[in-house]
Structure formats: structure tokens, C-alpha cells
Amino acid sequence: MLAALAALEEAYARRGAPFEGRTGAGAPVVGYVGADMPVELLTAAGARAFRLTGDPESDSALGDRYLGRGVDPVARSVLARLLAGAFGDLDRVVVSRDCEASLRLFYALRELSRVEPGRRLPEVYLVDILHLPHRTTALYNRRRIGEFAARLEAWTGRPLDLAGAVAAHNERRRLLAAAAELRRAVPARLTGRQFLAVAGAALPVEEHIALLERLLAEAGRLAEHAGRRVFLSGSDHDTPHVYEAIESEGHVIVGEDHSFGEPLRAEPVGGGGLDALAEHYHHSGPTAHRATAAERAAHVATAVRRCRAELLLAYSRAGDEAPAWDFPAQRAAAGIPAVSLERQEYGRSDLTALRKDDPCAV
């Protein structure tokens, strides 16, 4: 494996592991949850921030107890890991309202801190970004973004370097888009599992940029990956388990529409201020939890053509049923064979339907 890809894989393997140390005096260690998180603000505050992930292999009993088994198992797993101290010494947890499960997680953490102070949970904060196509929603989001920026300044005791942070994250978006083109090549130069590592490496943004630049410089020496080209739609994948299972069957995942893979909206933030940041996250992509079936279908049809996929695979977890509602419209719009895997266990995949000779009939 090439050096840059190996380093990104190693950093991806560390995601969600206990963080040790600080970035400097007054710099908080922040774990965040949700696809709508304005990460530029965390970088601007100098925080050591990483996205919290679940673990299908660990016990989620504590999360099940406080959230109930009807909630997406990823949120239940994240809560269980927080209560067990699996993420180490966090100063804060910041949650975005990207879906109902994230919101339920926020309420559970806030209430547990109130009624069980002996647990010594980190302070929890909600970033409430909405996505209705109205001016009032845009104004609401601008206020929420401004409040979060003010809270970060209060936490760190210093002004935010927002312009620098926006520029850095825009550069990372540009490099990730270039890396995504390697996966779209025919044959693919990155597998779907490798792209998860490329996109999700647990690194500060500047270190991530440096490794992405090295990866692109080494692109001519990347291996070629043949196999049936799959576009994966549906639930988020915060671990590689499902990708590994699918690709072990001889497929290559060349695109996806969830928030741990290729960004739904790769366009840069159009300016260095809070107004531009609020606008960007207001229109951050058609996820299953907030977009219409028609919007999701149009997005998938475009993405399928762009990555030259040969199969549309829609995956939804038990407890995260919203993506399955979009499948009929997606199948009609994509114009390629399509398979739906519904009510899957977290981190697991029953691939019986994928193995059938005629996936169009599923």
C-alpha cells in the first residue's frame, strides 16, 4: 500500500479512539455528532475535534436503556460508548440536528447530566440547523450559527479565525473531490472501503490536507480495482463493516449518498463569514431524513451516471427506516439494476438479494 493511503487508513482506524493530550492552553477537546456540524467553527476555535462513531461490536445496553431500542442503533452505540468513557477525556460534546436520532441523543445527554451529575459527562450543546426552503429558515440558521460561534469563543477565551478555517476546509473539500474522481475511474483506483478511510481519517484539517495532497501525487501508482460498480444509497456508515462485506463479494462501491463518504455538497463555502457558513449548511444536501423522495431520486440519478455505476444498492438499518421510503423513486430514476436491503442490523448486511442472478426483480 502506498505511504499516503496507508497513513490515511491508520488515521481512519483511530477514529473514535480515546484522545490524549491537548492542542494548547484553553483548546477544548470536542466530540461531535451529526452531518450538519459546521466543522469550520470548531477549527476556527482551535478545538481538537472529531466525529463520534458507534461500534457494532461493543455492548450498547446503556444506550438502549436511555434511548430505547426503536432509535437508530448508531445513536444508541454512541451514547453507550460515551457513558463507558470509550472516547477518553472530552471537554464538550456538540450535536447537530441532522436527524431525529441525533436530537434524541442530545436530549438524553442533557438530561443525564442533570439527573446523574456523578457521571461527570462533558457539557453538551445543540447546533440546530434547519433545511426548509424559506427566508425565515435562513434567518433562524444564521442566528444559531452566530450563537455557536459565540459559545466557542466563550469556551476558548479567544476570537475565532473563521476566514482561515473556511479556507482550509474548502481546500479539503477540493482535494476530497479529486480523490473521489480516482474511485470513479474505470477501473477504480480506490475501493469504497479505501475511500471511507480517505474521507474519514481522524486528523486535524491541515494534516488531512497534507496527506490528501500526497495521495493525489501518488495516484498513478494506485492499484486498479475491477468488479461490479455499485452506488450505495441509504443509511450512514460510520464503520467499514458493510463496505467490506459488499466488496468481498466482488463489487466495488464507486459512490454513496451518506455523510461519512463523499460529501453530498462538495461546493466550497462561498465566503469567510458567518452568513456564508449559515447559507452553506442550510443547503447541505438531500439526506433521507430531510429531503423529498423526488429530490433524493434526482440526486442519485445524477450521481449514478457520474460514477458510471452498474448497480444501485439501497441499504437501511433497523431503526433508520427513512432511506427505504426513497427506494422506488430512486430505482425508477437511476435506470440501472437496483437492490434494496432493508431493516439491516447495525454493521451487518444480509446480501442474499445482492447474490440473486436478476437484481432487477428484487
Results as ranks from 00 to 15, higher is better:
166 V>K: 02
79 L>D: 08
3 A>F: 05
221 R>D: 14
167 A>D: 08
276 A>V: 06
311 L>P: 02
325 W>M: 14
287 T>I: 12
121 L>P: 06
315 Y>G: 02
343 R>Q: 13
251 H>M: 13
347 G>R: 07
191 T>D: 00
333 A>R: 06
246 I>S: 03
163 A>T: 15
82 L>G: 10
232 L>D: 09
334 A>G: 00
272 G>P: 00
262 E>G: 03
329 A>P: 01
158 R>H: 11
114 R>F: 14
246 I>R: 04
329 A>L: 12
96 S>C: 06
117 P>H: 09
326 D>Q: 12
271 G>W: 01
111 E>D: 15
88 G>P: 09
221 R>P: 00
71 V>C: 03
234 G>L: 06
304 V>Q: 03
361 A>H: 04
257 D>Q: 04
336 I>V: 15
193 R>F: 03
84 A>I: 10
199 A>E: 11
171 E>L: 14
108 A>G: 12
69 R>Q: 15
357 D>G: 09
344 Q>H: 13
84 A>R: 15
136 T>F: 09
7 A>W: 00
15 R>A: 15
330 Q>N: 06
166 V>E: 02
147 E>I: 08
69 R>S: 11
20 E>Y: 07
180 A>W: 05
313 L>Y: 09
53 T>M: 08
10 E>H: 03
284 S>W: 10
273 G>E: 13
231 F>P: 01
175 L>I: 04
247 E>P: 08
358 D>Q: 08
123 E>S: 12
19 F>M: 06
2 L>E: 06
34 G>Q: 05
40 E>K: 10
103 L>T: 13
288 A>F: 07
90 L>C: 09
73 P>R: 07
162 L>A: 09
138 A>E: 15
339 V>C: 09
27 A>E: 14
358 D>H: 10
336 I>P: 00
294 A>R: 14
206 E>A: 15
147 E>H: 03
218 E>R: 07
109 L>H: 03
26 G>E: 06
215 L>W: 00
6 A>E: 13
333 A>G: 03
